[in-house]
């Protein structure tokens, strides 16, 4: 059972601001989704990941041929909301 304080804690962890009304509707909706997905708990309880039989292949490449230094810098910096020269500007964290 998901409770209001669970949703508040998760929203905090996920760095998302929720309004009071929205928290209430999320409690109800997330609880109903978890109620649905809980059906997998009833299925043959093999140890998680013990059955891994992926027929997957590693695709490797040499770490070479980088793009020219600074090739994308201007376009990327231009997209940032706050900048100074070739830097993205953020608030002081220390």
């Amino acid at each position: 059972m998901i409770e209001r304080r669970d949703v508040e804690k998760l929203a905090k962890l996920a760095r998302i601001e929720l309004s009071g009304d929205e928290t209430d509707s999320f409690v109800k909706e997330i609880d109903s989704i978890i109620g649905y997905v809980d059906q997998i708990q009833s299925v043959g309880t093999t140890t998680p990941q013990a059955t891994t039989t992926h027929s997957q292949t590693n695709v490797m490449r040499e770490d070479v041929h980088p793009h020219e230094t600074g090739f994308y810098t201007k376009d990327i910096i231009d997209g940032a909301p706050d900048k100074e020269g070739n830097y993205i500007k953020v608030k002081k964290i220390l």
Partner: peptide, 23 residues
Amino acid sequence: DYFLTRGAGFGKETRRRIILGTY
């Protein structure tokens, strides 16, 4: 800034799924 940007920038379904994923 993070809280306000993500609260206002993401729509309801996106926020719902991020919270579900975090859970």
